[in-house]
Amino acid sequence: MNKTWFAYVASVLVLIAAVLAGVMIGSVSIPIQVLWNPNFDEGLANILWNIRMPRVVLAGLVGASLAMAGAAFQGLLRNPLADPYTLGVSSGASVGAVVTLFFGISIPFLGLFTLPVLSMIGAFLTMIIVMGFAKLVDRTMKMETIILTGIIFSSFLGSLLSLMIALSGEELRQIIGWLLGSVSMRGWPYVKMALPFMIIGFVLLWLNRREINALLFGEERAKHLGVDVKKRKMMILTGGSILTGAAVSVSGTIGFVGLVIPHTIRILWGADHRHVLPLSFINGASLLIVCDLVSRTIISPSELPIGVITAFIGAPVFAFIFWKQRRKGSV
């Protein structure tokens, strides 16, 4: 129990540190007092609350969603290689976004939000199609069926993306930039748009934390332990997909967070998903906030795509932990 408490305390402290660093450091350094004293310097307060804070919060939410979705998918599919993108939901979201950029679509009333809205619709449609197809193929929706269906649809949608990239002209840079992921220049509206979905996804997964533990031992075993496997599986798939769809539609396809955070948590603190889920949530947020900070400061004033940084920082850290603790956990 002590170990678990330590995990939570340490994770929250790291998150707070990440948030503070995220809002204070940048092209303009902002002293910490500005947080509670807007009158200290109105210009700085404006930067902090309207530019830095929404960016940090969005990065945090995206990171948290991807990490938690990854943890849930790995547990549910009993596959350490599963990540939030396994089901193809992210490819659907990407197609929605790239279509917007490629055709220069701008829906009245939505304006700049055309892209995230279409992206979210893409994610949602993909989720329904993938699950519907998996169910059509195999009524019991075995894990293998779900993974294979996800791969089929990911590949198909991926080829659509490639097609549009191949045919694109000046939009190419925009498309690539979006695909590599970014949380810059989004502001509070993006946060507001993604937040409700993220809450729904979070609650759906949180309600199934014990069921994921049981499902780790296989569907049959879970059923014998009293889990309503069909219903619970649907809830977990839906929850994870909603989190993924919401994250991708506001930030692009940021890789690695959904894979590395849950594994790190499991190696450090065990595979009990009652804790893996919330701890992934917290640490996913921290990782992405830090990565975003690095991406915008390392070659300032230019920005690197955040997806480049996540793997760049995440992979060595993961490798180190993996090597250090390889005897304790099996991945």
Partner: peptide, 20 residues
């Protein structure tokens, strides 16, 4: 006997028996 994807402790495994 089954195979596992992830490593659970003995306590966690037995605790699952209390799920219902």
């Amino acid at each position: 006997l089954h195979v596992h994807a992830f490593s659970n402790t003995v306590r966690e495994t037995i605790s699952l028996g209390r799920y219902p």
